[in-house]
Design a protein around this nucleic acid. Structure first.
Lengths: 179, 179
DNA sequence: GTCTATATTCGGATAGAC
DNA sequence: GTCTATCCGAATATAGAC
């Protein structure tokens, strides 16, 4: 039972170090030292360094897939509110993972498993824009998508304080006549 | 006259490569090969790799200092519009430099010359929030600041199309009753 | 000012014993 | 499953000739 615990411990430590020093700023040596094992042990549990990060962000990626699938079933009238609240809930739940993904972008967008991420964020963007074809709505959606992500990464406030403020600013910016 | 041209050429090439492959993704070898000189020549003109990037973003940094100084003289009534338009004009003018700064953040925020950048963006943030003390206004300002930066970095549209859309979404989001 | 050659450090990854 | 030892490549930076 020590076996499985080592793997979990690697993920825990790597998550902390990647968050604090960035992915490139954290070496296998750093992780091994903190875990109290050798680099070889790291690479017994994970094929390579990238695989550690992939494992860390996998739950967030799955949640994004679920959200996009759910939005596909929402009609045009409710799409903006559903996309805004769904996205904000998602990034607040996975703040650390969002920070990690932004840290390694765009390098990881070439990873096969992350190539599909483009389509996912594009679907989300369309939801923010209320499925409008107007470029101005498209741009506004991008501003909010990027801005909300930036805030959950940098801001130290907790989600209880952030959530209503984020929802409010997104609604003002994206839904006409709602302020 | 070849002397000064080599330095300029290094900056030109480094700007391209940093933009395309990122700062860490570009080695001195890469730059030297593209310029057609040796790594040693690079380090004759610049003390180290970081100095090349600092030189590239210096004009943008100066413009930000100027903008913040200008905003200090604007009264509360006009501060939000002045901050919004000033910031958007700035980042549209220095799109490449903004992308570079975001690429190397937060590592470079520890650089002495860039430590002051925190105060600068904080002043800008206060302007976006209309100098309000309400945390919700603070958060909304952060969303717009980060979102606008994200768009000028990623979006391929030209500034003629981006500028009015960015100003419009920022005004809707930040200035009550103006949509 | 520019070069070649090299020092040095560091990082990811592998081999093979236990 | 975990270790020690080691390899290999990459990258920044320096030394010294021209």
């Amino acid at each position: 039972m020590v076996r499985i615990r080592t793997r979990d411990e690697i993920l825990r430590v790597a998550g902390e170090l990647f968050t604090r020093y960035g992915f490139k700023g954290t070496s296998l040596h750093d992780i091994a030292a903190e875990v109290g094992c050798s680099k070889a042990t790291l690479l017994y549990h994970f094929a390579h360094k990238d695989a550690i990060l992939l494992a860390l962000v996998e739950p967030a990626r799955q949640s994004l897939i679920d959200l996009v699938a759910r939005l596909a079933g929402v009609d045009d009238k409710g799409i903006r509110v559903a996309a805004i609240e769904g996205f904000i809930d998602l990034v607040l739940r996975y703040r650390r993972e969002v920070a990690l993904i932004y840290d390694v972008t765009p390098q990881f967008l070439q990873e096969p498993r992350f190539a599909a991420m483009r389509e996912l964020t594009e679907a989300l963007r369309a939801g923010f824009a209320g499925r409008s074809a107007d470029p101005a709505d498209h741009i506004a959606a991008e501003v909010l998508l990027g801005g909300i992500a930036a805030v959950v990464i940098d801001d130290k406030r907790d989600e209880v304080e952030l959530r209503p403020a984020l929802v409010a600013v997104a609604r003002r910016a994206l839904i006409p006549g709602k302020d």
